[in-house]
Amino acid sequence: MTELIHEADLDHAHPEHEGTGVEDRKLGMWLFLSSEFLFFGALISNYLLYSQRPGFPQPYPAEIYDIPFTSVSSFVLLMSSLTMVLAHNAQTREDANGARTWLFATAALGSVFLAGQVFEFTEFIVEFDMKLSTNPAASAFYLLTGFHGTHVAIGVIMLLSLWGISRRRGGLSDRHGLNLELVGLYWHFVDIIWIVIFTVVYLLSEPPL
């Protein structure tokens, strides 16, 4: 997704044309995210399949979830979507300082979520001895949440890059403003995926009998 950020020089290389009216890069991001939906769809289905197979070494992820803790970190991630919207809003109002602040807040909330995930993994591995190779359900859990975490981390890096550019140049140009919108799309996507994961994988999942 990062490679989409700075493709601004190309659009006006083309003469007038028929089109959707959606900016090229935004359309590209939408298409990319549609593919990502299937990526996470497959990972979530995987987990659902494996989490229901009984009879293998304990513990299963569903037995050791710390729902209150994960609820808090989910809330943090949800709030980051709000700050992302505020950043975008500030950008459209040409409020450079506001956009910068909210960008940083979004990145910070994302980082808090990531820290929570690191803590959760550590707890699962050290305290409950649930490793990648304990049982297939654990494998599926780590693969799913790990890839989601990677997506969040990439998002944080992109947010911080925008924040850095804004700081150095005293604001975001139109071109980077579009980048902010693209990162925003990506960020909301990652959030939505987490809501699904939290609901389906954490709240609704029960260990097999």
Partner: peptide, 14 residues
Amino acid sequence: SVNFLVTVLNLRAK
């Protein structure tokens, strides 16, 4: 594939 799709959707001649 993303590239081709955006090309087709947005860059057709008049």
